[in-house]
Simulated assay, not measured.
Amino acid sequence: MAEADKIYYRKPGRFTRHVFNNLVAGFTRAGVSIWGSRVLEVKGRTSGQPRRVPVNLLNHEGGQYLVAPRGETQWVRNLRAADGNLDILFGCRREHRSAHEVADADKAPILHAYLRRWKAEVGVFFDGVSADSTDEEIARIAPRHPVFVIDPLA
């Protein structure tokens, strides 16, 4: 398999899985957002059971986006299998929404904005690319980072 064909995924470490994500998700479910955090709930592709994970919800130019800094994560796979159906949780609020994947060629402005907002938290997953990188540098790493636009509320 060629390097470009390999699926990119950076598995979270034990601390992230068992401590950090639980803390962020707990605060978010209590209604305290940490830098735009929300809890994404999507049906598991194998079990059919709801799966929850904290995510950074990016508001950019009137749209809302989910970016997978770690690549082809479980939530990405589940969201694809669920045909984009998801719930976004914040405090007591639950919003049933749908999302669709953004094409690699259209990701640059979204990834620039995402990195501008969360570079300190997720920059290590972007191979030295930052918010100040050129569109060409962003285009190079774009296929590794799935991006979903959340459809507006009806």
Rank of each mutant, 00 (worst) to 15 (best):
21 N>K: 11
29 R>P: 03
48 G>L: 08
10 R>E: 12
17 R>C: 13
28 T>R: 01
35 W>G: 12
48 G>Q: 12
38 R>V: 01
21 N>L: 06
17 R>M: 15
40 L>M: 09
45 R>C: 07
16 T>F: 04
44 G>C: 11
24 V>T: 00
35 W>R: 15
45 R>G: 05
28 T>E: 08
42 V>I: 11
15 F>D: 03
19 V>K: 03
37 S>L: 00
18 H>L: 14
35 W>P: 08
18 H>C: 13
42 V>E: 12
30 A>P: 06
40 L>G: 04
27 F>S: 01
43 K>M: 12
41 E>P: 10
17 R>T: 14
41 E>C: 09
38 R>L: 02
46 T>C: 09
26 G>H: 02
15 F>L: 09
48 G>P: 09
10 R>D: 09
50 P>Y: 08
45 R>A: 07
26 G>L: 05
24 V>K: 00
46 T>P: 07
50 P>E: 11
36 G>C: 10
38 R>M: 07
47 S>W: 04
28 T>V: 07
39 V>S: 08
23 L>Q: 12
35 W>N: 15
22 N>D: 10
10 R>H: 11
49 Q>F: 11
26 G>Q: 02
13 G>K: 01
15 F>R: 09
51 R>L: 10
25 A>Q: 01
31 G>S: 02
44 G>Y: 12
43 K>H: 14
27 F>A: 01
19 V>E: 06
23 L>D: 09
10 R>P: 08
21 N>A: 15
20 F>Q: 11
27 F>R: 02
17 R>Q: 15
21 N>R: 05
35 W>Q: 14
